[in-house]
């Protein structure tokens, strides 16, 4: 129900916790659009909504887990991927989606990101990149472009930023893509494709943050930033992730950069277990049997 008591709803409302709407995101913020793309992509995949779990960390984007009407998990700062890994290992049937921000996934959770990518754990990561720590007041983060002004770099940033697709690809991610929150249809298609693929899938989405980042960088409204994305995005599918750095007010290379197939963590685990206990044994039973024989021996 809306504030005025009317029962008007939107198509995606069945996947949203309507009682928590309107959300806290600022006017002009792009996270809402990205969440809409994710939900509509999920609807189009025909995956059972009961088998989907959304995991978020801390930050503006971390709020997404609290707004979706799916199984969701709001975790500690930077630890969205470890929690998601646990979920996936305990219940391999689940479709685990990590929906979090750049400060959460790449800054404090950077180590977890590279190791989850290295292990190729079957999960989808949607990383909303707004180039700063929005929720705490717009501090400099590891994705802030060179020379960008933020609350803690008032004369311009002199730290080299992370190139997130390159980081993910170099760590072993099997699907790496980048879009901006303006490319809604392409983003939806990419998320759809990623949800149906197995392996560690990483999608970076560049989103406007007018309130704290845009205001310091001559793009004071969400619309200014969206127009900048529209004019400066270059679609290059299959581009080398090494060359997709983002410069302040420069071109943004978007597209699907990597799409390969590699055995996942569970595949390799199963292979080792079958080698050790024979091909007939399923992995749960093999472990139980081993424990039982160990227990009987100790008696």
């Amino acid at each position: 129900m809306n504030d005025d008591g009317s029962e008007q709803t939107q198509e995606m409302d069945q996947y949203l916790r309507e009682d928590r709407m309107p959300h806290i995101w600022c006017p002009g913020c792009g996270i809402g659009s990205v969440l809409h793309c994710f939900l509509s992509a999920l609807v189009k995949t025909d995956i059972d909504a009961d088998k989907v779990c959304v995991v978020s960390g801390i930050g503006c984007t971390g709020r997404a887990a609290g707004y979706v009407h799916l199984d969701s998990f709001h975790t500690t700062h930077g630890r969205a991927i470890p929690f998601a890994t646990g979920l996936k290992l305990a219940n391999p049937e689940l479709q685990v989606v990590v929906f979090s921000g750049d400060g959460d996934l790449v800054a404090i959770g950077g180590n977890h990101l590279i190791h989850a990518a290295r292990r190729n754990i079957d999960m989808t990561i949607i990383c909303v990149n707004n180039f700063n720590y929005g929720m705490t007041g717009g501090q400099l983060g590891p994705t802030t472009p060179l020379d960008a002004r933020t609350a803690t770099s008032p004369s311009g940033n002199y730290e080299r930023p992370f190139n997130i697709p390159y980081l993910a690809a170099a760590s072993g991610a099997t699907y790496v893509a980048r879009w901006t929150s303006m490319h809604v249809r392409r983003l939806e298609q990419t998320i759809n494709e990623a949800l149906l693929k197995r392996g560690f899938k990483f999608i970076e989405v560049i989103a406007p943050c007018p309130t704290v980042y845009g205001r310091m960088n001559r793009q004071p409204t969400g619309m200014d930033q969206m127009r900048y994305y529209q004019e400066n995005s270059v679609i290059q599918h299959g581009a080398d992730p090494k060359d997709v750095d983002i410069d302040l007010n420069g071109k943004i290379i978007v597209g699907k950069f990597i799409d390969i197939d590699l055995p996942t963590y569970s595949d390799l685990q199963l292979r080792v277990e079958q080698k050790a206990f024979g091909p007939e044994e399923s992995k749960g039973e093999a472990v139980k049997k081993k424990a039982a024989t160990a227990a009987s021996k100790s008696k």
């Binding site: 198509e11 995606m12 409302d13 792009g30 809402g32 809409h36 793309c37």
Partner: peptide
């Protein structure tokens, strides 16, 4: 349906 997809507030149908 572009307005519906772009709307960050889930306000358009």
């Amino acid at each position: 349906g572009l307005c519906e997809m772009l709307c960050p507030e889930f306000a358009i149908k």
